[in-house]
Structure formats: C-alpha cells, structure tokens
Design a protein around this nucleic acid. Structure first.
Lengths: 183, 183
DNA sequence: GGGAACAAACCGACTGGTCGGAACTGAAGG
DNA sequence: CCTTCAGTTCCGACCAGTCGGTTTGTTCCC
C-alpha cells in the first residue's frame, strides 16, 4: 500500500502552491518538489494531473462535510440548516485552512470537475437551506457567508480577522430571525 | 498608433478563453489565435504576459466604475453607497459580461497584480459603504452581492437568472432598511 | 527611406506524461 | 534458513509538445 499519509501530503503541497503562487503555477513538477517526492512517485499516486485535481475536490467536499457535522453537533438541536452552513463557513475561514483553494485550482484547469461540488452546493441550498417561504432572504444570507469566505481566496483579505468574525456573527443573528416575517 | 479597438479585442479574447477553458489555459498563443492576430502582433501591443494581465484588471476597474456611475444616476438621489454597489453588481451579473473573470485570471498567474483592485474595493467598503454605526450589517449585505456575483465564475451558476434577480432585489430591499435600527 | 504596426519563424525553459528499473515486501518452495 | 519471484512503491532520465519571449522579416504610410 501507498504510505497512507503521502496522498494527503501531496494534496497539501498542491494547496500550498495555489495559495502562495496562484493556481496558474500548479504544475506536477512543482507539486512533486514541494511534497518532497520525485515526479515518478507523484505520477504513481496520481496517474494524471486531472486525477490530482479530482482528488483535491474530493478532499474539499469530505473535509467540508466533516466540519459541517461537527458544527451541527455543537449548535443547539433544531438549529436551521442556514445557521449551520454560515457557522461552518465561518469556522473554515477562521481555521487557516487552504482547503477552498481547490475550487480555484480546479476551476483554472478542469472546470468540468467542479460539477460534483456545485451539485452538492446547489442541492443543499435548494433542499435544506432556502425554505420555500423565505427563499430570497435565506439565499442572500447564504451567499453573504459564501462571499465572505471566498473573498479571501483573492489573496490578502479586505477585512481583518476580527471584522470578518463580527460580520459572520451578524449574519448568524440575521439567520436566527428567519421565519419571523410580518404576516 | 495601434488600432484603437485592437487592445480591446485582445482583452475580450482573453476573457473568453478564461470563461470557456479556465484561467489555466490563458496562454499568449491562445489569446493571439482567438483575437485573430499573430503572436508578434500581440507581443507588440502587450510586451509581456504580465502587461496583458495588468490591462485586464485596468479594464475591470474602469468598466466597473462606469457602470457604477450609470447606476448612481439612475437611482434616486441620496441613495446609499451600499444600494448603488448592490445594484451595480446585479447589473454586471445580468449583462453577460465576462469582465470579472479578469479577477480569477490574474489571481492564477500574478496574484500580486490584484492589489490595485483589492485596495479599491477595500477603500470603497470602509469609507463609503459600511457606515460606522452599521458596519456589520452593511458589510454582510455587500458581501452577499459580491458572493452572488462571483459564484458565477465557478462556471455554471447554482441559481437561475430569475432566482438571482429576486435575491438581488431582496438584498436591495434589506439595504434600503439601513439605519432604521431600533433605538 | 524610415518608422509604425504587424507577421512568422525561432529559442530555451518548462510542461504533462512515459518508461525502465531500483528498493523493498511477503509468500512459496526447497 | 536461504532463495526465488511476483507485487508494490517510488525514482529519475527521457520524450514530444507547449510556454513566454526574441528576432527577423514584411507591409504600409508619411
């Protein structure tokens, strides 16, 4: 068997390159060097660049799911899916995770591979987060959290960590008011 | 002088490539072919790839500014900067403009070049949009519009055009309530 | 004829990917 | 216990093609 950590180490190396140099510089040679293995070793574990990109999205989806479940357990039972999603994005932003850069890397080289991720996102939004009677408001708040999270991918954030946190908290407050509409 | 339209044609070609194939496939050869000129001609107008990327951001900033001014004139006098910004992002999303893909292209190859764009964005947010007493709420709404707009850059939108429009309108409604806080 | 505007061939570095083999493992067989 | 052998994991040289960029025309206009 492959060293179990090796694939993860490779994926982390790939993420580091994207964050530090930009997705355009994500090359197999660079990944191999950064991960401390040879090109042959890299190609053995990921037969093509597409396979590497695909693994990056899988990692993104999986880790995101794990984090969401952890958040769900921490919040009071019965919390809305919207609240869970906002807090998950907040925690992801606060941890110095480079996870989300997989999105921009894959989008740069094989946009089609993002389909899985998109479908996942769309499905959750439409079937869990945006309640029929409150579609616009919930979707707006969801995208606010999304926008806050991804704007960091444009290297060097516009907001400080402190500001981001307080905006996220305001979002959660607004999400808490859901459903209490006049009428 | 260079044909005045040529530079614009080249920039549009670059945007088209980014949208259709991903930023990773934005190469000088591809741009030249798509723009219908030779590589020599391209290099005459943009001495390096960095110069091309830089021009893409300039174009983004300029056109964005123009649109914002047009929106400002259309809205009732005294409309908040937040409202103007949201509507500008909405119109940009509705026009089938590929403008914003400059952001992801530059981020892929020369992230440092995004500084100008970021500073611009940060400055406007902090000095015009987010009023001191309403920082969190205004910032949240701003990022909601931003998130809605950029999520399309991840190819194939999660929302339909119609859904996007109604969410944008809800955002504008929420922005209109600014300042009317209890107390 | 001389510069502006572009074309086209060309260059070395780098790209994704292949290939033969080295180093190690564990099971089989004597 | 030693040998053999197949399988796994990884190495590094190599290949053909592509990359950003340079050089050398060519055309057109003053």
């Amino acid at each position: 068997m492959t060293r179990p950590d090796l694939k993860d180490a490779v994926l982390e190396a790939a993420e580091a390159i994207v964050v530090e140099a930009g997705a355009g510089h994500l090359t197999l040679d660079a990944v191999a060097e950064r991960a401390g293995i040879s090109k042959g070793g890299l190609m053995y574990n990921f037969r093509t660049k597409e396979a590497l990109l695909d693994a990056m999205i899988s990692r993104l989806i999986e880790q995101f799911d794990e984090l969401r479940q952890k958040v769900r357990r921490k919040l009071p039972a019965g919390s809305s899916a919207l609240l869970v999603e906002i807090k998950t994005l907040m925690e992801l932003s606060e941890s110095n995770s480079r996870l989300s850069c997989a999105m921009v890397a894959v989008n740069a080289f094989q946009p089609g591979l993002l389909k899985r991720f998109r479908d996942d996102m769309q499905n959750r939004l439409l079937s869990e987060i945006a309640a029929p009677g409150d579609f616009e408001r919930a979707t707006a708040l969801y995208f606010a959290a999304f926008g806050l999270h991804v704007h960091e991918l444009l290297n060097v954030p516009i907001l400080t960590r402190k500001q981001m946190k307080s905006v996220f908290k305001e979002l959660m407050r607004m999400a808490g008011e859901g459903g209490k509409r006049p009428g």
